[in-house]
């Protein structure tokens, strides 16, 4: 079965980001496919490379980056949600004349159309948080 995972919750204060990650790992472990992970609303916080959680806690940003790298699953963060919350890639940082980019490795910034496309292409869309 083909899944899309939608992450809407902020990673630092809601458990939804790591729950979504564990779900995604389980989906692949069960032999299913993930079409895309889409980060929307406060969920784009999972793509913030500048967040520093305490050392004795799991770093959701790093964990997602690692998941994207090892699984090859596409991690897409909504551009409108990202801009509002200061998650920028090099292109956006330059466009808005901000001092630096802040998006974590393995994530790409794209439009909401990617969420709708994922809904239409997947058998199941599973939302976390929000």
């Amino acid at each position: 079965m083909k899944f899309t995972i939608l992450v809407k919750g902020v990673p630092c204060s809601a458990g939804s980001s790591l729950s979504a990650l564990h779900y995604a790992q389980a989906v692949l472990a069960q032999g299913h496919e993930i079409y895309r992970v889409f980060f929307y609303q406060d969920g784009v916080g999972s793509a913030n490379a500048l967040a520093i959680p305490p050392q004795d806690e799991t770093d959701p940003v790093k964990a997602w980056s690692e998941f994207g790298r090892t699984s090859g699953v596409e991690l897409v963060a909504c551009i409108a949600s990202c801009l509002r919350r200061g998650i920028l890639d090099e292109t956006e940082a330059e466009r808005y004349q901000k001092p630096n980019a802040s998006i974590a490795q393995g994530f790409t910034i794209s439009g909401l159309g990617q969420l709708i496309d994922a809904c239409l292409e997947s058998d199941r869309v599973i939302s976390f948080g929000g």
Binding site: Y40, Q41, A80, L112, L115, I116, C119, G130
Partner: peptide, 15 residues
């Protein structure tokens, strides 16, 4: 949340 939900439905309607 409402604004972001509205953005999503308007985008969805294009598809």
């Amino acid at each position: 949340g409402g604004k972001e939900g509205l953005d999503a439905v308007l985008m969805g309607s294009a598809f």
